[in-house]
Amino acid sequence: MAGNNREHPYFTFLSSMKLGLLLLLLLGVLASLGSFLPQGQPAGFYRAYYGELPGRLIVLLSLDHLYRSWWFITLGAILAVNILTCSLRRVKKAPGRRGWGSIILHLSILVILAGAVISGVMGRHTYVEIGVGDSLDLAGRGFPGQVLTVKDFKIEYYENLQPRQYISSVSLKTADGQEIEQDIWVNRPLKFKGLKIYQTSYGWLARGQAVIDGKVVPFDLASGRGLDIDPGKNLKLMFFFIPDFDEQGGSLHSRSPLPNNPRLAVVLFQDHQVTARQVLAEKETKTVDGYPVTFSGYRYYTGLEIKKDPGVGIIYTGFILLLLGFALRYLVPDKHVPERAPHDS
C-alpha cells in the first residue's frame, strides 16, 4: 500500500504495463518471423537459399531454431516475471471477485509456461516401428520396464478407399508385471500412468531370402529398404511391396491399398541406376541378375509414437485455471464495479 513509492525503480519497470505491452508485441513479431523462415534446417540450406551472408546471419542469430533460441526463451521468461510481479502488486490491493478472476487468469499463464518448461526439460518421446506379431523392449528407447507387443494392425476404409481409421491392437507389459491390452487409433492413444502411445504411421514388411555369393541371407524389411550386396561397387538389392499388382499394366504401382494381388518387386541398383528387376508372387523364387530371391510373406508394421511428459498435466491445469479466471473476470457480478454496457460512453 504505502510501500509503493519506496519500490526499486527496476521493480517498477519490471512490473509495468509498458514492458508487458512491449513484450506481447515483440514476441508476436518474432514468432511471425519464425513462421516465414523454415526452421531446423541444416546451416547449408540457409546459405544456399538466402545467400551467403544472410544465411550466415540467420544461423548466427539462431533464427534457424528461433523458438528454442536463448533470446526468445529469455523474452518469454521476462514476460513471465512481468506478469508475476504485476499480479502480485494487484493482490496487495484487495481485489474484488472480478479482480481475483483477473489475477487467476494471469497466474494461469505462468502455470502454462511452467508446464511448457517442464515438458521441454523432462518430456521424453520416441518413435518405433513394430511388425505385427513382434514385441519390442522399450528399455532401449528410454522407457525401461515396458515391453510392447503388436498383436494386430488394420486399416478401415470408406467406400472410396480413403482411410477411415488406422488401428493397432497392442499389449503393454509394465515393470510391475501388469499387462494392458488396448486398441490404439488416431485420436485415441493408449494412456497408462503417464505413458502415452499414439498411432502415427504404418507400412508393409516383406519377408524372404536372397542368395548372395553362395550365402543365404534372410530379410524382413520395410517396403523401400534393401540389402547391400557390395558397398564398394554401390550394389544394392531393393524390395518394394505392391499390395495390388496390376498384371496388365505391368507398372509397379498398386491398383489399390488392399492386398488383393500381393507381389514383391525386387530391384537391383548399381550406382543408383536400375540394372535388373523382377516381380515375385508369394512363395516364388526368381533370379535377379544372378541373385536368387525368394518372397515368403508380408505383413503390416505399425508406427507408434511413445511419450511420457509430466508437463502436460501442469499445462492442462493451467488451461482450466485460465478458463476459470475468465469466468470469474467476466461472468461473475462484482459489487464494486458497475456493469458497463457498450452503448454508454
Binding site: 511471425s32 519464425g34 513462421s35 523458438y67 492413444p189 502415427t200 499445462i315
Partner: peptide
C-alpha cells in the same frame, strides 16, 4: 490427443498465438 504434442510452432498455431497476443 492426435500427435502427442500440445504445441509445435506449426505456422497455423503460431499465427493463432500471434492473433491472441495482438
Amino acid at each position: 490427443e492426435v500427435w502427442g504434442r500440445w504445441w509445435g510452432w506449426d505456422p497455423k498455431e503460431t499465427w493463432a498465438l500471434i492473433t491472441w497476443l495482438i
